[in-house]
Structures are given as structure tokens and as C-alpha cells.
Simulated scan of single mutants.
Amino acid sequence: MSILSFLFKEQNLPDEINILDREEYKTAISKSKVQLVDVRTKGEFLSGHIKGARNIDFFQGVAFDAAFSKLKKDAPVYIYCQSGNRSQKAAKKLVSLGFTKVYDLRGGYMGWRY
């Protein structure tokens, strides 16, 4: 376990959640049509997002749950936020909703330079 993993609490994540660096994430989302979700606010999303991402705001509570209920729980879902903190919380929420393969972008959109 690296110091960064310890500092950013990645060691406390369920097995269903994987944190990918930007290269791994880019490769994974470019392979085929994937469930790619930006969990930031609408304003953040409109200021720039990863091509093909759908916006489901983590802070919208019931609407967040309802939007994810329409996605396939047994298919991988790729999420990201601004810095990686909110998406880790969202990833844990998705596991509690029954998602089995959740991939989060380490460092969030701030680290995405493509």
C-alpha cells in the first residue's frame, strides 16, 4: 500500500471499486461503449467534461439514485468528479445500490488533460 493510497483512504474501499489512473481510465473508456458518468454538479459538467459522459449529480440524493437505477448494475460503470473525493463517496453509494464493477478516476477531472 502506498503512502498516497493511505492518505486518500483508498484502502477502505469495497472490492467492487477500483481507482484507475488517467491512462488506465482513458484506455478503459475508449474500448467500447461504457457507462461513463460525471457525478459533479450541472454547472461543473457544463464547464467541461469527458466526451461521452452522462451527468448525474451526486448531491441530488433521490434523483441520483433514480438515475442510476436505469443503468445496468452488472456492467462496469466509470465515474469521476472534480478531484476524486466526491466520486469515491458516489462509488460507495453505487455498491450499496447493487453495482458490482465501479471504476473511479484517480484525481478526478482536474487530472484529465486530453
Rank of each mutant, 00 (worst) to 15 (best):
K73M: 05
E24W: 01
K101P: 00
S2P: 02
A63K: 15
R54E: 12
D65Y: 07
K72W: 01
R54W: 00
G107W: 05
V39C: 00
N85G: 15
L4D: 03
A53Y: 08
W112R: 01
R54H: 04
D21T: 06
K92L: 11
S47P: 11
I19G: 03
V62L: 12
F6L: 06
D38M: 11
W112M: 03
Y80L: 05
V34N: 12
V34D: 11
H49I: 00
E16K: 14
E10N: 14
A91T: 04
G107T: 05
K42T: 09
E10R: 10
K42Y: 13
E44P: 09
G43V: 07
R54K: 14
N85F: 11
S47F: 12
S83K: 15
S30P: 02
T100S: 13
K51N: 14
K93N: 10
E24S: 14
K9P: 00
K72V: 07
V102E: 00
D57P: 01
K92G: 11
G108R: 02
L46H: 09
L71K: 06
L71C: 06
K26M: 15
G98D: 04
F45Y: 14
N85W: 13
D74H: 10
T41L: 05
D38I: 12
F68D: 00
K70V: 00
L13I: 11
Q35P: 06
Q60R: 15
K33P: 07
R40I: 04
R86Y: 06
N85P: 04
G48E: 07
N18V: 07
C81G: 15
K9L: 06
K93M: 02
R86W: 03
L36M: 04
G108H: 05
K42I: 05
K93F: 09
N18Y: 03
F45G: 01
